[in-house]
């Protein structure tokens, strides 16, 4: 028996024993774990940043009731209790036809507006096996302004009173705390309120949220117009506020210079100026009802 044969016999034994010893169960778990694709969820706590749509929408067969209030201008003084005496409200429902497709309707006392929208999530930010850096939603809305005082005539056909908005919502959740959203948008009025206004207003909206705690986020949105910028008495919509999530509800409290709560009038129709204190305290209450029988 030579040393070589001994070595030859020993080697397989060593080879067999070595890998089993070297690998801890932890490492083995890492090894057998299959790559998964994780959808990034809760980019925003609700389908509204403040007044603007976010990339989020109700899950399939979830009905979301959104009640929005905007009080009068803060600069109206103590007599009006800084705007609290007046209120504009929108009551609306969003419904998830699928996890990516939502429809919604609403009625706002502002210009006695009925609105409806469709929103579809084309891309869903994900990580893991399939890595998609952003969420991308398409949102189209239509609104009809039924206030007879608005156009100073009541013989207008319905179609003349209609406004539309189309936009792409691009959002990315940069970790648990920060989400940012970009909103290239166009709003169209079939009949403008004054003769020299353009029918189409383009805007590049931005929005975001900063998570302050598990249940509270700071939100903001800003809709700078790309055309018709010089118009007297019109301003870019700017809102900021907090989302407070309590379990069944998301409460959104904010300050904003715009009264409209749907994009067709939200984009380009803002009359309040932050610099003059012409801003409104407001809130949204979001309540989700799960109508489906489970998934």
């Amino acid at each position: 028996m030579t040393r070589k044969t001994l070595l030859a016999c020993l080697l397989p034994a060593l080879l067999l024993a070595a890998p089993a010893r070297a690998q801890s169960l932890d490492e083995l778990l890492d090894q057998i774990e299959e790559p998964r694709t994780e959808l990034v969820r809760a980019t925003f706590k609700s389908p509204r940043v403040v007044s603007a749509q976010s990339v989020e929408s109700p899950a399939r067969q979830d009905l979301l009731m959104v009640i929005g209030h905007r009080f009068g201008p803060v600069n109206s003084g103590l007599q009006e209790l800084f705007g609290i005496d007046q209120a504009t409200m929108r009551m609306g429902f969003d419904y998830g036809l699928g996890d990516r497709l939502a429809v919604g309707v609403g009625r706002s006392s502002f210009q006695k507006t009925y609105d409806g929208f469709v929103k579809y999530r084309i891309l869903w930010q994900s990580q893991g096996e399939r890595n998609i850096p952003v969420s991308l939603s398409w949102h189209s809305a239509a609104a009809v302004l039924t206030s007879t005082r608005l156009y100073n005539r009541d013989d207008l056909e319905l179609v003349s009173r209609m406004r539309y908005a189309h936009q792409l919502l691009v959002a990315r959740k940069f970790g648990p705390r920060l989400s940012l959203q970009l909103m290239p948008s166009v709003a169209h009025s079939n009949l403008t309120l004054t003769a020299d206004e353009p029918n189409d207003i383009f805007a590049l909206g931005t929005g975001g949220r900063l998570k302050l705690s598990n249940r509270v986020t700071l939100n903001w949105e800003y809709y700078p117009r790309l055309n018709d910028r010089g118009r007297e008495g019109r301003h870019d919509a700017l809102s900021l506020g907090f989302d407070i999530e309590t379990g069944g509800h998301v409460f959104q409290l904010h300050l904003t210079n715009t009264l409209s709560m749907a994009e067709p009038s939200l984009i380009g129709q803002t009359t309040g100026s932050w610099l003059d204190g012409d801003i409104h305290f407001g809130f949204n209450i979001n309540r989700t009802f799960a109508l489906g029988k489970g998934r």
């Binding site: 969820r41 899950a59 399939r60 979830d62 989700t288 799960a290 489970g294 998934r295």
Partner: peptide, 15 residues
């Protein structure tokens, strides 16, 4: 069963 529960579970409780 409810999507919202799942979101809250991940976001608020289990982090």
């Amino acid at each position: 069963e409810k999507a919202l529960m799942q979101e809250h579970f991940n976001e608020n409780y289990m982090e």
